[in-house]
Design a binder for these strands. Structure first.
Length: 258
DNA sequence: ATGCCGTGGAAACCACGA
């Protein structure tokens, strides 16, 4: 079974690429971020016609997340991250598909840092860590997948020195990510590719993709109940080279049957 | 060194992204 996360940077603007990727790569479960569409403008019909059940949490212009499951409807368990009723951003959606629980998340970017946006990012990450503490200890399998907007280590960025003051790479952000992982999560791509350079995002400009000037910021974390089933992990890099594509590439894991 | 490109929405620019 293949589980993927993909920041689409506008589900309608990049719908053709999303549909082609679903058709050609046939992921079983997909977490989308940055759908950038209000609830009523999500392209539900074409996604269902492509063979996927889907739930989504939209928002006008910004953010927005969705969970797709091939051949079945995800059963929603949480909409929004608990802990702050005043936070109206659509950044977290949780569901079960068969026995698997999926948390789909879009961590705030946080730039410029320091500042209010960076404070919001760190507060949001604290709330995520609280939710994750409950999920990690379950005896049933859980995957937390999404755009974490955190570059975990030096080998996850083409040129670390250029990113030292950036909200994606500042010590506070990396510390938050590492504290989350240390609850017992497995960073699946890094687990199976411990020393390799694996990027999931490339800027649109300066020919970043052509130069392979990328970042690894999209992650799939597995709880201990699921980690033994991790078989493969990777990035569908070629999708980043398609016309009218997102600046992220789909990032995925393959799980063995239980 | 830098939103240089791109989406979405409103109103021919602006917010936001990483």
């Amino acid at each position: 079974m293949k589980v993927a996360t993909y920041n689409v940077n506008g589900v309608n603007g990049h719908l053709a690429v999303l549909l082609r990727w679903l058709e050609e790569y046939k992921p079983d479960i997909v977490c989308l971020q940055e759908i950038k569409a209000p609830q009523e403008k999500f392209p539900e019909k074409v996604i269902r016609d492509a063979g996927y059940g889907v739930i989504w949490h939209g928002q006008k212009s910004y953010n927005g997340v969705a969970i797709l499951a091939r051949g079945s409807d995800p059963v929603e368990t949480h909409r929004g991250l608990p802990g702050d009723p005043e936070d109206l951003h659509s950044r977290y959606l949780e569901a079960t598909v068969a026995d698997l629980t999926i948390g789909c998340l879009y961590v705030p970017n946080g730039n410029p840092a320091p500042g209010l946006k960076f404070d919001y990012k760190l507060r949001w990450f604290e709330r995520l860590t609280l939710r994750a503490a409950e999920l990690v200890k379950r005896t049933a399998p859980v995957v937390l997948a999404g755009d974490y907007n955190v570059i975990p280590t030096d080998i996850d960025v083409y040129k670390p020195e250029r990113w030292v003051d950036d909200a994606l790479f500042r010590p506070e952000s990396r510390k938050a990510y590492h504290q989350l992982v240390e609850q017992g999560w497995t960073d699946s791509v890094r687990k199976l590719h411990p020393k390799e350079r694996v990027y999931t995002f490339w800027d649109y400009f300066r020919n970043a993709f052509g130069r392979d000037a990328g970042l690894r910021i999209d992650h799939l974390l597995l709880n201990p109940a699921l980690a033994p089933r991790l078989k493969k992990a990777g990035v569908d890099r070629e999708v980043r080279g398609w016309e009218k594509t997102s600046d992220h590439a789909p990032t995925w894991i393959e799980l063995t049957k239980k």
